[in-house]
Computed example of a mutant assay.
Amino acid sequence: MSEQQRTDPAGATTEAPRLGGLHHLTAITARAAGNLRFCTQILGLRLVKKTVNQDDTTAYHLFYADGAATPGTDLTFFDWPAPPERRGTRSIARTGLRVGSAESLHWWAGRLRAEGVAVSEVAERAGHLSLDFEDPEGQRFRLLDDGGAGEAHPWERSPVPAAHQIRGLGPVTLSVPDLRPTAAVLTTVLGMRAEREHASADGPVHVFAMGPGGPAAEVHVVVQPQLPAAREGAGGVHHVAFRAADAAELRAWAERVAGFGLRSSGEVERYYFRSLYFREPNGILFEIATDGPGFAVDEPMETLGERLALPPFLEPRRAAIEAGLKPLD
């Protein structure tokens, strides 16, 4: 039986739906205004949706992406007044961002240093030429060369030249104390492929790929049993989401996850996409999210992110919600 198949209680073999790659990654900031400046003015990303956390409307939920708000390019932040993350295992330890060439990596090394950001050397890490750095709150990032594969949608108002703009999410790195339960969920439940293994200073890195493969569709897992468990906080990552094509595919994922005995949120309507949330056995929160309808469902593409956007069920509370949010200027 292949890794993408399972046998249901009646004995029939069922195929896993196909994940299309990374959809978005959501982190935590305690400094929303500074986060906005860093992501748009230093990283050159586009603010494509300024909204609130639908489960906590006192907090912004900021979405940054490429010029066309393409699924797979979204880096998002919950604005929570949290202390800094305590780093450790059972966490998403590093966020990958793709650029189109080795030349771009060297350009970024110079740009980040000029902005006072400490950066690593450009070197090969886990199979990709890359550059590591941290944002002002300590979130760990890795810029990597994706070879210019696939489409790119630069933002014409970015301070970063189009040739060097961030093209989307790259591999996310999970830290776990024990590979086996996480690998079982990635392969047997989610249908990913165990592709390769690399040595690193942090421990062995196991690379899993989904759908089309490549850096926009990879999850890296580093095994670090010597570390304490991470504690959620500012500068840390809350969850990672994988791409489902549409609502029908998400429904199939909900049935599949339940069929393996994993507790989930069930399908959740987020208005800009539909979601399913569950934790893998080492405690890391996964989401599967639909590609549509997208961020232009309630705003013109040309003016995304310029006003506070609220899903219809929150619109009647707009005045109270706006009054409770601190300015981003």
Rank of each mutant, 00 (worst) to 15 (best):
H238N: 11
V52D: 03
L227P: 00
Q4W: 13
G266M: 03
N282F: 04
A16D: 10
F273Y: 13
L310P: 00
V99Q: 00
A201Q: 14
P316N: 13
F273Q: 09
G67L: 08
P281R: 13
P154R: 14
P311D: 15
S158A: 15
L143H: 03
A184H: 11
A248F: 08
A258G: 15
R270F: 05
L262Y: 12
E287R: 03
G266W: 10
A247P: 00
V122M: 01
G211H: 09
E124G: 13
R98L: 09
G110R: 10
P311Y: 11
M301L: 15
V172C: 08
S200E: 07
E3F: 04
R113I: 00
A65H: 05
G100E: 03
G88I: 01
G294H: 08
Q4M: 13
A323Q: 11
W253Y: 07
I92W: 01
D202Y: 06
F242T: 07
A296Q: 15
P228A: 15
A68V: 06
K50V: 06
L112F: 00
G236F: 05
M301D: 10
H239N: 08
D329M: 05
A319Y: 03
D329I: 02
A319Q: 14
G67F: 02
A217N: 14
G11A: 10
F208P: 01
A59Y: 00
R18Q: 13
A82M: 15
P159E: 04
V99M: 06
R167H: 07
T73F: 05
R6K: 07
V122S: 07
P293C: 12
P136H: 10
T173L: 14
E218Q: 13
A12I: 09
P327I: 09
